[in-house]
Nucleic acid binder design. Sequence first.
DNA 1: TTGTACGCGTTATCAC
DNA 2: GTGATAACGCGTACAA
Lengths: 338, 338
Amino acid sequence: MTRRSDSVTIRDVARHAGVSVATVSRYINQTTPVSLEVAERIQQIMLDMNFQPHAAARHLATKRTNTIGLILHNMHTDFFAPLLSGIQAEASEAQYNLLVATYKSPKLNNSQPPIGPHNTDGMLVFADSLSEEHLTTLCQDQFPLVLIHRTPPVNINIPFVTVENKAATRNIIDHLIEVHNRRSILFMHGPREQEDSQWREQGYRESLTAHGIAFNPNMLIDGEFNGEVAYRNLKDLIAEGKHQFDAIFTGDDDAALGVLTALDESGIQVPRDVSVVGFDDSRLSAFLNPALTTVRAPTQEVGRRATSLLLQLIKNQPVKPETLLPTEIIIRRSCGCQ
Amino acid sequence: MTRRSDSVTIRDVARHAGVSVATVSRYINQTTPVSLEVAERIQQIMLDMNFQPHAAARHLATKRTNTIGLILHNMHTDFFAPLLSGIQAEASEAQYNLLVATYKSPKLNNSQPPIGPHNTDGMLVFADSLSEEHLTTLCQDQFPLVLIHRTPPVNINIPFVTVENKAATRNIIDHLIEVHNRRSILFMHGPREQEDSQWREQGYRESLTAHGIAFNPNMLIDGEFNGEVAYRNLKDLIAEGKHQFDAIFTGDDDAALGVLTALDESGIQVPRDVSVVGFDDSRLSAFLNPALTTVRAPTQEVGRRATSLLLQLIKNQPVKPETLLPTEIIIRRSCGCQ
DNA sequence: TTGTACGCGTTATCAC
DNA sequence: GTGATAACGCGTACAA
């Protein structure tokens, strides 16, 4: 065994210190007082030998990994930088490690996600990266779970952290209609399974209804919260030339990039010909040309909160079941203002 | 113990299948053929019982974690999205988990980084997140290591992956001087310890020298590869009004955001009054106003390559000691072109 | 092809 | 305050 048998164990430390492993363990974990002289001796030897407790052995003995998991389907866009940053900050502050995995519940094959009870103390689940079945099973096994940007399956009690989508979208569409007199508003949605997109669509529809504008399914277009997809699909739509529009809700800021490019290449001017609004207020939004009117979502804070809740859960503390972070419309120029 | 004694072990599976744990283990790891009927029985029972091998136990027995670590000092900017994405993609493809940690070697206290041989099979070290001492020790312990955006300490042999900094910077400064006739070029550097910044400064100096422009230390300004810092420092410099300039190399694209804002707020027009160029070609660069002339760095590819090398190292395969990915100047409008 | 028994490094329980 | 020692869950010689 021991392919690389260099590692120094607690036993080595104990031997050199002339005490038992139990004593060393006690010193390390401050679980029971140890005589001062012994403490100093152990401390010194640990430094000299560069001893590092073996995580797996510890895990096996304590049933705790000191690691939280994050599962998401991909991390291609800049959206995830603040999210990860928030999670990482909160986790490391609590001395927890972060295990990140991308995963997408396959419909057919019933594979298991790479992280779970066997290698973490709890996990953060982003959007629909885990199926309802997986969530249900994990929850029933009492595994600490916090959902990010999604709600739990019915009758399953898992705390979640997300942002206010509907009202914000409603407001921004209202703005388009009331202030800029737009009435043919393209709604670009994200992945259909993603709740954010669904709520945003509701806000869109409500606004339309409130202003007596008929909902037209042809005005729905797929953007997948992804700049390239948004670009391609909008280009196609323009090329077909079947549907006229004077405004676009892009779904999120990443898609807005693609939209602006497509519009620009098609000789359509923003905001003169078409108003464009996004969602997230990612770092770049203010710098786009024209500056993007969008909805500010506190993504980093979402990460922090979710992690904080998860850590409480792990400590068996009660937590607030739902956290809905407020969003705020940021008016810039792409809608036509100024 | 067993605070949550729900977990089903290999022993349970063995018992239900009427075989020994060894046989189950063999089936799971395909280490030795198992009779067909036994195989099917085990398979069925594992599904029924929802058995998941316990990672720590496995780790303890095999000395392998199937996890790679990534250590960096922070992940505040969008620069890290493609990097992480590349790393994650490559890791998960090889069935490896990714443990992410932020860490900064403290000067005084000799704390240990949260990831290392005790919980990973190898690790990716970004820039100067780990001290030379740490690197040296880990390397001597034969721990698989790949450096990202930095080179190893002298006489220490650790493969690294980074991008070509100097020539690209030299070229882009050449462009500023030769094409746009700029001669007072502010050089905004990143963190001083970061090699990227050092190489870029060399390129800057070489270009100056080649064009007979005296190097002026007052033209060096701190940007820390960070938009807010860049904004603040440039604002201060402008307020002081001591140093005139007709161009700025911002260090990276993130800092360019701050620079453009500061310039705009100061009534300085880009590129008419001042040329601005960045580095990285992050997602937003093309969309800035004016579109940013910059150097394209294949950040995602850096992540992929580094991970790929690390995985080879873990398999004890020999690897290329240095990978220098090419960069390319992307001319847009902020330098004054078009 | 299968089973037995031991070891992996640590913590926790029990004595002292 | 300290020392033995039995878990923890799994892989793997070795024997059969």
